[in-house]
Design a protein around this nucleic acid. Structure first.
Lengths: 221, 221
DNA sequence: TACCTCCTTACGGGAACCCGTAAAGGATCG
DNA sequence: CGATCCTTTACGGGTTCCCGTAAGGAGGTA
């Protein structure tokens, strides 16, 4: 089983449980941190001392607070960690239902395990630890189906820009100007309309209100 | 300190930590359940046996799964529990940022403690336990500010109906018909427009998209 | 009853949005 | 270089939405 594990999780309550789970599995050499920056520091120091970590268990969403951080979310942390230690195993522990970014990283083998915070998450975490230790990938059952649902519509960067502008209260007729200023193309009103229609069509919506709420709910914007 | 505590929390990881926190505080007579229905059953049985619980610690959001439940969320559970045991203390442990319903119940003294799942939630839970035991109410620091923000606009039942219809993809001109069918008054297009404008004005929005996303985010619809 | 107030409803002009069609621009390939 | 295909843009009409004004109705008071 893993020997040395680092836990990055800002919620104290979740952090305690992960520690306890590891402890019950006989992993005693664990370190827990509440900030991404601290996690990277500890990993770097461990490499320097020739005692690098085997595994990183990290959340995705970290809340901002008074102490400003360089790295503000788990995905950025993973990228940074992989730069300094490409062979480290990574298990992601997240409350988010679905996210295109997580799925992408999972497919790109940046992530070895994916556990969704849900009813049986403790058991799923134990399964993930076992599986990942055997150099296989793991994802909890409930997160699997979301990846499939995900395929309903693949939002492009352009799509997200438009929806974000809508969410910010920009009218459609003002959008071409905004997009041009930010060097985003296409930028014409027609393209915006066409794209909005396509998104609504695919997702079975009739109004922009639904589209914006949907994207907001899924954390795209 | 409390003698007998019931924990209702569907996430295994969170549940473990709460148990551990209680254990560390010297509370050993704890029972944990993953479903609201089970929670109510245990409380009823404890009363029947003359050994009722002192405290209920519960989440708000419970995920649906294969086993269908009568009570599906924490607020309903609290109401049901208070019917059979009005003097039980209640601490709510929730990830939700803000919710008009929670705030209402807190003000109505249905809830004694409110801890938001966040960075220092473990410590906040310990503080809540101490404070509530002394017959005072507690809410974690980060949840306090949300209750204030809340007051920006008091949504009427009518407001919520309109926004809900928007979210369902109903066009404004179809709404009068819908509202009349459900005996909701006023029902004219003018009234709907006027009300939407007022809401947007108060909240500083320019577009319905923002309004719908806002209400969705706060759990009003 | 007359008068006032508050809320609801009705209506109309103008703006924004929806939708289909057609032209313009770019990329590829023979 | 021209032909073809695809994407982007431009335009026009029809609809919905926005917003101000005015008429109708319910309730309270003299």
């Amino acid at each position: 089983m893993f020997k040395k594990v680092l836990i990055a999780e800002d919620h104290e309550i979740a952090n305690i449980s992960v520690q306890k789970t590891l402890h019950d599995l006989g992993i005693h050499n664990t370190k827990y941190v509440y900030y991404c920056d601290h996690a990277l520091t500890w990993i770097k120091n461990a490499i320097r001392d020739g005692e690098s970590y085997d595994l990183l268990i990290t959340d995705i969403e970290f809340e901002d607070d008074d102490s400003p951080q360089e790295i503000k979310d788990g995905l950025s942390l993973i990228k940074a960690v992989k730069m300094v230690q490409p062979d480290i195993k990574v298990i992601v522990l997240t409350a988010k239902d679905r996210s295109a970014l997580i799925n992408e990283m999972f497919r790109d083998n940046q992530i070895d395990g994916l556990v969704r915070k849900a009813r049986r998450d403790g058991q799923h975490l134990r399964e993930a630890l076992q599986t990942v230790y055997q150099h296989r990938t793991y994802q909890s059952p409930d997160s699997k189906k979301f990846i499939q649902e995900q395929n309903s519509h693949e939002f492009t960067q352009f799509d997200l820009h438009i929806v974000k502008l809508l969410y910010e209260g920009i009218s459609q007729k003002e959008m071409p100007e905004y997009l041009q200023q930010r060097d985003i193309r296409p930028s014409s009103l027609s393209s915006i309309e066409k794209r909005l229609n396509l998104m609504k069509d695919v997702l079975g919506f009739t109004k922009n209100e639904q589209l914006v709420a949907h994207c907001k709910e899924l954390g795209f914007i």
